[in-house]
Design a protein around this nucleic acid. Structure first.
Lengths: 193, 193
DNA sequence: GTCTATAGCTTGATAGAC
DNA sequence: GTCTATCAAGCTATAGAC
């Protein structure tokens, strides 16, 4: 059973990913969710900003769970990193490069123009970095470089989504994944420097 | 002497960077450039799409020249990479995190909704990758990993802009720069594997 | 080439019946 | 809670005087 509210957030998330925040109209979101515009304002009295904040938080949580599940299922850290980039490339391919990061486009749009939404995106990214830093440490990386590697992983994945969507080609994600794997491998204490 | 046309493109570039494509109105662009809306349609009969294409191409060329100049001025490849990330962090700091990549926000917005603008962004990124691949090779990196490292550099720089603007903090860029330097250093043939 | 006025449409948001 | 009708303001784009 999916509530009207959940359908609105789902439609909003999909449209934000494909067309961004300013490019997605409330009428469009209402239509895609099958609800009239009045229902939207019933569930989100704060209007578009409130809906966006809730959409970003829900998508951010879902993505974090997905990445955590990948790392928890992988036999070791390096394999987890490989699976992340392979999975991202696979998703891009099967959705005609529409399904990428649900936060990035909106985050860039609002960073300098909507302070309260900027804070929401900052909290989401910080949550991702904390979760990944913990996985890095659990995988054998020293505490200090763990945060740096987690940051590099998120940044390169986001940059990979950007380059792949622009080019309609997954080659950049493959190159970035390979580089990221080498970086993580080199940071494992078992390696010589 | 700056022509009306150049002022329109300049205002358009700044607004696209801060608010994106859909979020920047033509009236806003006209006002920021000091030209009436009629002049805008005189210089760009194709309307918003044509203005955006020209704005993206001009900003893309300017950014490519900037990065090329940094690498050409640096004493060696690793120093060039360091300067890129230091410069990016410095620009973010001095512009209150408004001045980042002039292509990324628009590229994500149009990737799945405007095919002709998507192609423009793809060409710009490809130009950057070619220029950086050449610099990597000139700096001593073997031909094969040169393109991979160039891709990683662009992706991590773009991801760094995203994380820094969202957090209003340059710490992510510093972490990413350090990781990127290590990656390039490890790929130099003078190093052991 | 520059500029004003405005058409035609869509936006975010609200009021109120049911 | 659901849905329709509507408002004021914004948008892109055009027409036409100068």
């Amino acid at each position: 059973m999916v509530s009207t509210r959940e359908r609105i957030v789902g439609a909003s998330s999909a449209l934000f990913m494909e067309r961004g925040y300013a490019g997605s109209g409330l009428k469009q979101i209402a239509q895609a969710s099958g609800a009239p515009i009045g229902s939207l304002y019933h569930h989100f009295p704060g209007g578009k900003g409130e809906l966006a904040a809730e959409t970003l938080r829900a998508s951010g949580r879902a993505y974090q769970s997905l990445v955590e599940a990948i790392f928890d299922a992988a036999p070791d850290l390096v394999t987890g990193v490989e699976w992340c980039f392979d999975g991202a490339a696979e998703t891009l391919r099967t959705t005609d490069f529409a399904d990428a990061c649900p936060i990035a486009t909106v985050a860039l749009e609002v960073a300098s123009s909507d302070e309260s939404l900027r804070e929401v995106t900052a909290e989401i990214f910080e949550g991702w970095l904390r979760a990944l830093t913990a996985r890095m440490a659990a995988g054998g990386i020293n505490p200090e470089p763990a945060r740096e590697l987690a940051t590099m992983l998120v940044a390169s994945l986001e940059g990979g989504f950007l380059l792949c969507r622009a080019a309609k080609d997954t080659a950049p994600m493959a190159a970035i994944g390979a580089a990221m794997v080498e970086l993580v491998r080199g940071a494992l204490p078992s390696n010589q420097h």
